[in-house]
């Protein structure tokens, strides 16, 4: 792990990217459940207390960032599928756009939550203003929190990877041959 980057360009002060530390790992293991719970609370309780999807999504993404700092960015990257990161952002945009555009199809305005009332009001047993509340929560949780969490995780890993293409990075490192072929297999599907 200490030979994460060999091209230090003669800069002697360059430290290795990852140093295994018992203190950091134990601290992160202890803190993570609380941060994740707080992030979910901030997201789900955005209409009743300070916070919302943006802040909650950032907290949920920071859980992944902390795991990466404690246990190594490369090993975290390998256990986190690209499908999940991209899916979070894309599904978030689709949910937000879907909730916003359906009222227009029903003859209303963009994000006019009350247009759902004549269609779903009797089926769900909700009052008219409650559609605004639950519509806002759906946008906060399924839209904004998904987008922010996914994009922040993605930005973190892509910044850590840098500009070099992953294939050249793998061959430059001292990774065993079977590991390299395993990651190539994953990229193919």
């Amino acid at each position: 792990m200490s030979t994460d980057r060999d091209d230090t360009d003669g800069v002697a002060r360059q430290r290795p990217m990852y140093t295994e530390s018992q203190v950091i790992m134990t601290t992160v293991k202890t803190v993570i459940p609380f941060v994740l719970t707080y992030g979910l609370f901030i997201t789900f309780h955005g209409t009743g207390s300070p916070g919302g999807g943006f802040q909650g999504g950032a907290l949920i993404a920071s859980v992944v960032l902390m795991i990466a700092f404690a246990f190594g960015i490369e090993s975290t990257r390998q256990s986190l599928a690209n499908r999940l990161v991209v899916g979070l952002g894309t599904v978030g945009v689709l949910i937000f756009a879907g909730i916003a555009l359906v009222p227009m199809a029903l003859g209303g305005n963009f994000l006019e939550y009350t247009k759902y009332y004549p269609v779903l009001g009797s089926a769900l047993g909700l009052k008219k203003y409650e559609f605004v509340k639950y519509g806002m929560e759906a946008v906060e949780i399924g839209g904004i929190a998904f987008i922010v969490a996914g994009v922040l995780m993605g930005l973190f890993f892509i910044l850590a990877a840098g500009v070099t293409p992953p294939a050249a990075d793998e061959s430059a490192g001292a990774a065993p041959l079977d590991e390299v072929t395993a990651t190539e297999d994953q990229e193919d599907d």
């Binding site: 209409t47 009743g48 207390s49 300070p50 919302g52 203003y129 605004v132 509340k133 806002m136």
Partner: peptide, 9 residues
């Protein structure tokens, strides 16, 4: 109008 206690949201 919205049922949200947090007016900012």
């Amino acid at each position: 109008e919205t049922g949200a206690e947090n007016a900012v949201t």
